[in-house]
Amino acid sequence: MQGWTAVLRRELAGYFVTPVAYVFIIIFLILSGVFTFEIGGFFEARQADLRSFFTFQPWLFMCLIPAIAMRLWAEERRSGTLELLSTLPITRLGAVVGKYLAAWIFTTLAIVLTFPLWITVNYLGHPDNGAILTGYVGSVLMAGSFLAIGACASAATRSQVVAFILAVVVCFGFLLAGLSPVLDFFQGWAPQGVVDTIASFSFLTRFDSIGKGVIDARDLIFFGSLIVTCLVLNAALLERGK
């Protein structure tokens, strides 16, 4: 794993030398505000919580996170720096982890910057701050999972557009997995085991339960193993098609 910290530092700094970071953070914050207050009906609900904020977050992430992830490897391939990176004395997995962690730290920063919402609800009433904290933990975990999926998609192709679309579709699939129309569709003919498996892949169900203040070890293991699987797959995809 030697050298992965160098990759992490470079990547993280890379976000801030280009407008990417600022554009992403600003758009994320504006959309978060719009969804929470306008569409989510924050004031109409007359409740001091961040439910309307967290409800829309998975869908926001589904569109925005692939945009961050799409350039991770596709760009390295296109510009030829992948060859440079691969011939430095860094293991492939080290490079994958370094890049991934930098992207995750960056999105975590964007999520943390929504703290004015938290201040707002505390000013307006007495929210359950424990639930809000676990809600944020859920956000970070979900962002991490989407990023890992997006990084994989980016490693699979030279084109950023293809990587983006691929990642959105896969993320959408994971979000839909827990919704009743999807489960009903399988219910009729697929064995119960398959239906349960599909339901267990649902990001939404797990995200909701974490957001309610329940951090279940199984949810953590689910997100953790999903991320690890994606990163290993990511490293393998890089080997391919050089």
């Binding site: 470079r10 030398v17 030829g80 004395p89």
Partner: peptide, 20 residues
Amino acid sequence: PAYADMTPESFLDFCARARG
């Protein structure tokens, strides 16, 4: 090939760190 948005200074710093 080199990272286009980096400066030679930061790029060389990265390579040196990556080489331990």
